[in-house]
Design a protein around this nucleic acid. Structure first.
Lengths: 190, 190
DNA sequence: AAGACGATGTAGCACTCGCTACATACTTGC
DNA sequence: GCAAGTATGTAGCGAGTGCTACATCGTCTT
């Protein structure tokens, strides 16, 4: 009755971390079966065997990556409230510089592009990752913020815009925009 | 001396619009030589002949698309100043709904993903498109805006963040964020 | 012990990829 | 008219794609 059967040393659960490591390093565009299999120490045959098809593998992988991203966020970010919205932004943008987060940001735009083209499995993963970030933002909002929920979404919008501009080499515009929007204080016209 | 030689009916200039139409419809991911050639009424052989390599073709194509995007923006957008920053955002987001602009937004995220992976030719095209949008935004800023340049960059950041959230199906968060950020008027904490 | 069954390797299929070699037009300069 | 060069078609190469057929190996049940 002891269910402690040796079990195969290879399963979805043991494969996914290795596959994730590979796509974080090399991107989803290069994620074809044979390179993935090599990275996981197995064969394309086995990947199909375990996941059924490449599409299913990618969907499982994205879902795993969303969970891994959540774990990385939890591990790397504090949960103390900030004193101002500007400080919330500063914290998350500083976080974007941390080396272990950069593969996620590189991968992120491939996921967004996949969403825009309607690829299956992409939208749920993207939404899960944004949900996670939004949760963290809400927890960071200053205690005296007049609208923590709306403010968190406002900051989320700014953050993602700034990350996109940074990705294409327009980071200076993003910084100027954040300064103009956040540091203008009460003088921001509607 | 009459330079009106018949000239070949096929050249980069005549091919690029047809190639652009194809990638706008089907995405950069499906942009391999044979489908592109079919869309342009020629052969892969001829594409290589005219552009030298696929990389060069993509680079030329992205540069052409950036110019086409600028032309589409000019044609579709007015140049009258808005009365408020919120109105500027409303105009550009309404523009995003216009059918002839949607292929560009779908393509946009593939370009961003290419930038994030350092693909050659992607960053200049992305920067050109953002420069164009930024120019238009600066021209739209209200006459009484205290900081038109910074404000335009601020709005650009918000717009791109909102478009990204919309692309992944998180448009509601983006709308809530814009409302919280722009409609709060002078009560926005810094 | 025998058979069933899950796990894995090997080989390969039909296809697409970017690109090239070669042959052939067609136009142009003399 | 003829050589030269430019433009185009055909065929194919070697590599990579997702995926499958088949054989095998090992464990587990009975």
């Amino acid at each position: 009755m002891a269910r402690a059967k040796k079990q195969s040393p290879m399963s979805k659960d043991s494969l996914l971390p290795l596959l994730a490591r590979h796509v974080l390093a090399h991107g989803l565009g290069q994620a074809s079966l044979r390179p993935l299999a090599r990275a996981a120490g197995t064969s394309d045959r086995m990947l199909i065997y375990h996941f059924g098809s490449k599409n299913a593998l990618i969907a499982d992988l994205l879902s795993y990556l969303a969970r891994a991203y959540a774990a990385a966020l939890d591990a790397a970010l504090g949960s103390a409230r900030a004193r101002s919205r500007a400080e919330v932004i500063a914290r998350i943008l500083a976080q974007g510089e941390v080396p272990e987060m950069q593969p996620y940001t590189a991968l992120w735009w491939e996921i967004v592009a996949g969403c825009a083209r309607g690829k299956p499995g992409f939208a749920p993963a993207a939404q899960a990752m944004i949900d996670e970030l939004l949760d963290w933002l809400e927890g960071q909002m200053p205690a005296d913020d007049p609208d923590p929920a709306g403010g968190a979404r406002y900051l989320l919008t700014l953050i993602e815009g700034a990350m996109m501009l940074a990705a294409i080499g327009h980071g200076a515009s993003a910084r100027a925009g954040l300064d103009a929007g956040l540091l203008a204080g009460g003088r921001v016209p509607s």
